[in-house]
Amino acid sequence: MMQPMDTVLSVVKHSWRSLLFWGLTFAVFAQTLQLAMLIIRFGDLPNYGISYDWLGNISTIAQSTPSIKDMLPIMFEEWWIEIGFMNYDYGNGISEWSLNVIPSRLVILTILGGLLALLILLKRNSACDAVAGTVGMAGASVGSVLVCMTTAAMSWVVCCATPSWVVGLAMLGLSVSASLALEDLGPTLFFSGFAVLLVSIYAIARGQAQQHNRQLSSDKSSHELPALEYTSALNRT
């Protein structure tokens, strides 16, 4: 009997390079998309960029934060690159908006991209019914949107308020009150997004495992397990 996890692990084993490639591509795409949204939202091209000594800063945080419980969240928020628009109409210039490339978020986006690629691979090799497939893909879409949204690394130098993911929502047009009301839901939405995505993967993998098991039981004459070929449709391109 083939289990859903066996199906997933088999795909990961055979296609990990492809999954990693698409994960990284997705992370770069997500950041580029965020930058494009900022440019469209504010109507200005970025006019400054700063690269930070991320490793050095991580080392400083590690050395000067006694508690590991405190250290990890601070490291998680550490910037690597800042790209934004500086308004020089007032004073010596005021940074109006910026996209912050944060390595920890890149890792999350890469994992997210990898999971999406995994889902697509499973779906392509699955003969599960159309409704289940559509529901699975819809679930995955919702999950990815939630994760992407809550890992948005944009900041708006609006305020003295500490930057958070809802700043991205406010910048993109959601009202302030609605944005602030959602702020505390960040971790819940983030984990819910991943959970929905994982459930979708599981559902499709389960369908595929069942299909495989049915195939096995109907094939009375053969004692050999047919090898599942998870040739990636993505690879074929």
């Binding site: 308004n87 109409d89 007032y90 005021i94 109006e96 708006w156 130098v157 609006v158 305020c159 406010a170 009202s175 302030v176 009150s177 944005s179």
Partner: peptide, 10 residues
């Protein structure tokens, strides 16, 4: 209520 930076508000 709208959220606007000082420069944008000005």
């Amino acid at each position: 209520l709208k959220n606007q930076s000082p420069a944008v508000g000005a």
